[in-house]
Protein backbone atom coordinates (compact mmCIF):
# COMPACT_ATOMS: atom_id res chain seq x y z
CA UNK A 1 0.00 0.00 0.00
CA UNK A 2 1.30 3.41 -0.93
CA UNK A 3 1.58 5.71 2.07
CA UNK A 4 1.88 9.48 2.10
CA UNK A 5 5.15 11.03 3.28
CA UNK A 6 3.45 13.06 5.99
CA UNK A 7 1.80 10.17 7.83
CA UNK A 8 3.20 9.34 11.28
CA UNK A 9 5.23 6.23 12.02
CA UNK A 10 2.69 3.49 12.55
CA UNK A 11 2.69 0.41 14.75
CA UNK A 12 0.86 -2.86 14.08
CA UNK A 13 -2.30 -1.69 15.89
CA UNK A 14 -2.48 1.34 13.59
CA UNK A 15 -2.01 -0.88 10.56
CA UNK A 16 -4.87 -3.14 11.69
CA UNK A 17 -7.07 -0.08 12.15
CA UNK A 18 -6.18 1.24 8.67
CA UNK A 19 -6.75 -2.21 7.15
CA UNK A 20 -10.15 -2.48 8.87
CA UNK A 21 -11.34 0.87 7.46
CA UNK A 22 -10.02 0.01 4.00
CA UNK A 23 -11.76 -3.37 4.22
CA UNK A 24 -15.14 -1.63 4.36
CA UNK A 25 -14.16 0.61 1.43
CA UNK A 26 -13.18 -2.46 -0.61
CA UNK A 27 -16.34 -4.44 0.21
CA UNK A 28 -18.59 -1.55 -0.82
CA UNK A 29 -16.69 -0.77 -4.02
CA UNK A 30 -16.54 -4.44 -5.03
CA UNK A 31 -20.25 -4.87 -4.32
CA UNK A 32 -21.22 -1.88 -6.51
CA UNK A 33 -18.82 -2.88 -9.30
CA UNK A 34 -20.13 -6.47 -9.21
CA UNK A 35 -23.65 -5.22 -9.76
CA UNK A 36 -22.56 -3.12 -12.73
CA UNK A 37 -20.47 -5.94 -14.22
CA UNK A 38 -23.45 -8.31 -13.84
CA UNK A 39 -25.51 -5.86 -15.91
CA UNK A 40 -22.75 -5.64 -18.52
CA UNK A 41 -22.63 -9.44 -18.92
CA UNK A 42 -26.37 -9.69 -19.22
CA UNK A 43 -26.64 -7.05 -21.95
CA UNK A 44 -26.15 -8.25 -25.54
CA UNK A 45 -24.98 -6.33 -28.61
CA UNK A 46 -28.47 -6.11 -30.09
CA UNK A 47 -29.79 -4.38 -26.98
CA UNK A 48 -26.94 -1.84 -27.05
CA UNK A 49 -27.58 -1.17 -30.77
CA UNK A 50 -31.28 -0.67 -30.09
CA UNK A 51 -30.55 1.78 -27.29
CA UNK A 52 -28.09 3.80 -29.37
CA UNK A 53 -30.35 3.90 -32.42
CA UNK A 54 -33.70 4.58 -30.78
CA UNK A 55 -34.74 8.24 -31.13
CA UNK A 56 -37.05 7.84 -28.13
CA UNK A 57 -34.21 6.75 -25.88
CA UNK A 58 -32.00 9.57 -27.17
CA UNK A 59 -34.87 11.95 -26.39
CA UNK A 60 -35.22 10.45 -22.91
CA UNK A 61 -31.47 10.88 -22.33
CA UNK A 62 -31.61 14.52 -23.44
CA UNK A 63 -34.72 15.05 -21.32
CA UNK A 64 -32.99 13.52 -18.27
CA UNK A 65 -29.96 15.76 -18.72
CA UNK A 66 -31.67 19.11 -19.24
CA UNK A 67 -34.40 18.65 -16.67
CA UNK A 68 -31.98 17.48 -13.97
CA UNK A 69 -29.56 20.34 -14.71
CA UNK A 70 -32.39 22.90 -14.65
CA UNK A 71 -33.74 21.48 -11.39
CA UNK A 72 -30.23 21.59 -9.89
CA UNK A 73 -29.69 25.23 -10.91
CA UNK A 74 -33.06 26.24 -9.45
CA UNK A 75 -32.26 24.25 -6.28
CA UNK A 76 -28.90 26.04 -5.91
CA UNK A 77 -30.60 29.38 -6.52
CA UNK A 78 -32.74 28.65 -3.46
CA UNK A 79 -30.08 26.79 -1.49
CA UNK A 80 -27.48 29.55 -1.23
CA UNK A 81 -29.66 32.24 0.39
CA UNK A 82 -31.61 29.66 2.40
CA UNK A 83 -28.49 27.90 3.67
CA UNK A 84 -27.00 31.25 4.66
CA UNK A 85 -30.16 32.43 6.42
CA UNK A 86 -30.58 29.16 8.32
CA UNK A 87 -26.92 29.19 9.30
CA UNK A 88 -26.58 32.82 10.34
CA UNK A 89 -29.95 34.11 11.53
CA UNK A 90 -32.13 33.01 14.41
CA UNK A 91 -35.80 33.79 13.88
CA UNK A 92 -39.09 32.55 15.33
CA UNK A 93 -39.69 29.07 13.97
CA UNK A 94 -36.04 28.58 13.02
CA UNK A 95 -35.97 24.97 14.26
CA UNK A 96 -39.23 24.17 12.46
CA UNK A 97 -37.96 25.72 9.21
CA UNK A 98 -34.72 23.76 9.53
CA UNK A 99 -36.70 20.52 9.98
CA UNK A 100 -39.05 21.26 7.05
CA UNK A 101 -36.01 21.63 4.77
CA UNK A 102 -35.19 17.98 5.47
CA UNK A 103 -38.75 16.76 5.00
CA UNK A 104 -38.56 16.03 1.24
CA UNK A 105 -35.51 13.82 1.91
CA UNK A 106 -37.55 11.52 4.14
CA UNK A 107 -40.74 11.70 2.02
CA UNK A 108 -41.44 8.36 0.34
CA UNK A 109 -40.82 9.30 -3.34
CA UNK A 110 -44.36 8.35 -4.40
CA UNK A 111 -45.83 10.68 -1.79
CA UNK A 112 -43.99 13.64 -3.34
CA UNK A 113 -45.52 12.85 -6.76
CA UNK A 114 -48.96 12.25 -5.32
CA UNK A 115 -48.87 15.48 -3.30
CA UNK A 116 -47.89 17.49 -6.36
CA UNK A 117 -50.62 15.85 -8.41
CA UNK A 118 -53.27 16.60 -5.77
CA UNK A 119 -52.05 20.19 -5.37
CA UNK A 120 -52.11 21.03 -9.08
CA UNK A 121 -55.21 19.02 -10.00
CA UNK A 122 -57.53 19.42 -7.03
CA UNK A 123 -56.72 22.60 -5.14
CA UNK A 124 -57.72 26.13 -6.10
CA UNK A 125 -54.19 27.64 -6.04
CA UNK A 126 -52.82 24.73 -8.09
CA UNK A 127 -55.58 25.01 -10.68
CA UNK A 128 -55.17 28.77 -10.80
CA UNK A 129 -51.46 28.30 -11.66
CA UNK A 130 -52.26 25.70 -14.29
CA UNK A 131 -55.42 27.10 -15.83
CA UNK A 132 -55.37 30.88 -15.27
CA UNK A 133 -51.64 31.50 -15.44
CA UNK A 134 -51.22 28.83 -18.07
CA UNK A 135 -48.14 27.28 -16.44
CA UNK A 136 -48.87 23.60 -16.84
CA UNK A 137 -46.99 21.03 -14.85
CA UNK A 138 -49.13 17.87 -14.75
CA UNK A 139 -48.01 15.43 -17.47
CA UNK A 140 -45.74 18.14 -18.92
CA UNK A 141 -41.90 18.39 -19.17
CA UNK A 142 -42.01 21.36 -16.75
CA UNK A 143 -43.51 18.96 -14.24
CA UNK A 144 -40.37 16.80 -14.46
CA UNK A 145 -38.26 19.79 -13.36
CA UNK A 146 -40.70 20.59 -10.56
CA UNK A 147 -40.70 16.97 -9.33
CA UNK A 148 -36.92 16.83 -9.40
CA UNK A 149 -36.70 20.16 -7.60
CA UNK A 150 -39.06 19.03 -4.82
CA UNK A 151 -37.27 15.72 -4.39
CA UNK A 152 -33.71 17.02 -4.57
CA UNK A 153 -33.54 20.66 -3.40
CA UNK A 154 -33.19 19.61 0.25
CA UNK A 155 -29.77 18.14 -0.50
CA UNK A 156 -28.54 21.46 -1.89
CA UNK A 157 -30.02 23.47 0.98
CA UNK A 158 -28.68 21.12 3.66
CA UNK A 159 -25.20 21.13 2.09
CA UNK A 160 -25.21 24.92 1.80
CA UNK A 161 -26.27 25.35 5.44
CA UNK A 162 -23.59 22.92 6.62
CA UNK A 163 -20.86 24.65 4.64
CA UNK A 164 -21.94 28.13 5.81
CA UNK A 165 -21.91 26.80 9.39
CA UNK A 166 -18.27 25.86 8.78
CA UNK A 167 -17.25 29.31 7.54
CA UNK A 168 -15.96 31.19 10.57
CA UNK A 169 -18.02 34.32 11.21
CA UNK A 170 -14.88 36.21 12.15
CA UNK A 171 -13.97 36.46 8.47
CA UNK A 172 -17.23 38.24 7.75
CA UNK A 173 -16.82 40.41 10.84
CA UNK A 174 -13.38 41.56 9.72
CA UNK A 175 -14.78 42.27 6.25
CA UNK A 176 -17.44 44.48 7.87
CA UNK A 177 -14.72 46.55 9.60
CA UNK A 178 -12.89 46.83 6.25
CA UNK A 179 -15.83 48.57 4.63
CA UNK A 180 -18.14 45.78 3.52
CA UNK A 181 -21.89 45.76 3.86
CA UNK A 182 -23.33 42.42 4.92
CA UNK A 183 -24.06 41.59 1.26
CA UNK A 184 -20.50 42.49 0.24
CA UNK A 185 -18.95 40.42 3.03
CA UNK A 186 -21.17 37.50 1.95
CA UNK A 187 -20.19 37.88 -1.70
CA UNK A 188 -16.50 38.59 -1.22
CA UNK A 189 -15.70 36.33 1.74
CA UNK A 190 -18.38 33.86 2.75
CA UNK A 191 -19.45 32.66 -0.70
CA UNK A 192 -15.91 31.98 -2.04
CA UNK A 193 -15.09 30.05 1.13
CA UNK A 194 -18.29 28.02 0.82
CA UNK A 195 -17.89 27.44 -2.93
CA UNK A 196 -16.68 23.85 -2.88
CA UNK A 197 -19.33 22.74 -0.40
CA UNK A 198 -22.05 24.33 -2.49
CA UNK A 199 -20.78 22.59 -5.64
CA UNK A 200 -20.69 19.30 -3.73
CA UNK A 201 -24.31 19.91 -2.70
CA UNK A 202 -25.08 20.60 -6.34
CA UNK A 203 -23.61 17.22 -7.33
CA UNK A 204 -25.79 15.41 -4.78
CA UNK A 205 -28.82 17.34 -5.97
CA UNK A 206 -28.15 16.60 -9.61
CA UNK A 207 -27.52 12.90 -8.90
CA UNK A 208 -30.82 12.65 -7.04
CA UNK A 209 -32.70 14.55 -9.80
CA UNK A 210 -31.08 12.58 -12.63
CA UNK A 211 -32.10 9.20 -11.29
CA UNK A 212 -35.54 10.20 -9.96
CA UNK A 213 -38.33 7.79 -10.83
CA UNK A 214 -41.27 7.35 -8.43
CA UNK A 215 -42.76 10.86 -8.30
CA UNK A 216 -42.34 11.27 -12.06
CA UNK A 217 -44.46 8.23 -12.85
CA UNK A 218 -47.34 9.70 -10.83
CA UNK A 219 -47.02 13.40 -11.64
CA UNK A 220 -45.90 13.48 -15.28
CA UNK A 221 -46.23 9.87 -16.39
CA UNK A 222 -43.91 8.47 -19.05
CA UNK A 223 -45.13 9.47 -22.50
CA UNK A 224 -42.79 8.49 -25.33
CA UNK A 225 -41.06 11.49 -26.79
CA UNK A 226 -42.67 13.88 -24.33
CA UNK A 227 -42.20 13.23 -20.62
CA UNK A 228 -40.02 10.16 -20.78
CA UNK A 229 -36.70 10.26 -18.94
CA UNK A 230 -34.11 7.47 -18.67
CA UNK A 231 -35.32 6.16 -15.32
CA UNK A 232 -38.92 5.84 -16.51
CA UNK A 233 -37.77 4.30 -19.80
CA UNK A 234 -36.02 1.54 -17.85
CA UNK A 235 -39.27 0.83 -16.02
CA UNK A 236 -41.31 0.78 -19.24
CA UNK A 237 -38.86 -1.50 -21.07
CA UNK A 238 -38.65 -4.04 -18.27
CA UNK A 239 -42.45 -3.99 -17.79
CA UNK A 240 -42.90 -5.13 -21.41
CA UNK A 241 -40.24 -7.82 -21.04
CA UNK A 242 -37.29 -6.06 -22.74
CA UNK A 243 -34.92 -6.78 -19.87
CA UNK A 244 -31.75 -6.52 -22.00
CA UNK A 245 -32.77 -3.12 -23.35
CA UNK A 246 -33.73 -1.94 -19.87
CA UNK A 247 -30.29 -2.98 -18.57
CA UNK A 248 -28.54 -1.30 -21.50
CA UNK A 249 -30.35 1.95 -20.68
CA UNK A 250 -29.43 1.49 -17.02
CA UNK A 251 -25.78 1.21 -18.04
CA UNK A 252 -26.12 4.34 -20.14
CA UNK A 253 -27.58 6.15 -17.13
CA UNK A 254 -24.76 4.92 -14.87
CA UNK A 255 -22.15 5.91 -17.45
CA UNK A 256 -23.50 9.46 -17.88
CA UNK A 257 -23.79 9.91 -14.10
CA UNK A 258 -20.25 8.62 -13.54
CA UNK A 259 -18.75 10.92 -16.18
CA UNK A 260 -20.64 13.92 -14.78
CA UNK A 261 -19.71 13.28 -11.14
CA UNK A 262 -16.04 12.67 -11.94
CA UNK A 263 -15.75 15.74 -14.17
CA UNK A 264 -17.40 18.05 -11.64
CA UNK A 265 -15.07 16.74 -8.96
CA UNK A 266 -12.05 17.31 -11.16
CA UNK A 267 -13.20 20.82 -12.02
CA UNK A 268 -14.21 21.60 -8.44
CA UNK A 269 -10.88 20.59 -6.99
CA UNK A 270 -9.78 18.14 -4.34
CA UNK A 271 -11.87 19.76 -1.62
CA UNK A 272 -15.00 18.35 -3.23
CA UNK A 273 -13.73 14.83 -2.80
CA UNK A 274 -13.81 15.38 0.97
CA UNK A 275 -17.59 15.65 0.94
Amino acid sequence: MKTAMNTPVRGWRDRIFSAATLFFVSVFIIFVLTLIVTDIFYVDKEAVKEVLKSPFIRHALWMSIWTSLTATLIALFFAVPMGYALSRFRFPGHILADAIVDLPIVFPPLVAGLTLLVFFSLTAPGRWIQEDLGIEFVFQPKGIVLCQFVAAASFAIRSAKTVFDDVDRRYENVALTLGCTQWASFRRVCLPLARNGIIAGGILTWARAFGLFGPLMIFVGSFRGRTEVLSTTIFLEQSVGNLEVALAIALLLIFVALIAVISIRLVGGSALVKL
Binding site: N173, A175, T177, G179, T181
Partner: peptide, 19 residues
Protein backbone atom coordinates in the same frame (compact mmCIF):
# COMPACT_ATOMS: atom_id res chain seq x y z
CA UNK B 1 -22.35 50.21 11.16
CA UNK B 2 -18.81 48.83 11.57
CA UNK B 3 -17.76 50.12 8.14
CA UNK B 4 -18.71 53.70 9.04
CA UNK B 5 -16.65 53.88 12.24
CA UNK B 6 -13.22 54.24 10.65
CA UNK B 7 -11.62 51.70 12.96
CA UNK B 8 -8.81 49.31 12.00
CA UNK B 9 -9.35 45.96 13.69
CA UNK B 10 -6.95 43.03 14.02
CA UNK B 11 -8.81 40.13 15.64
CA UNK B 12 -7.27 37.37 17.70
CA UNK B 13 -5.81 34.71 15.37
CA UNK B 14 -5.90 37.45 12.71
CA UNK B 15 -8.78 35.97 10.62
CA UNK B 16 -6.92 36.40 7.34
CA UNK B 17 -9.06 35.36 4.38
CA UNK B 18 -7.70 31.92 3.45
CA UNK B 19 -8.90 32.06 -0.18
Amino acid sequence: EPRARGIGYVPQDYALFPH
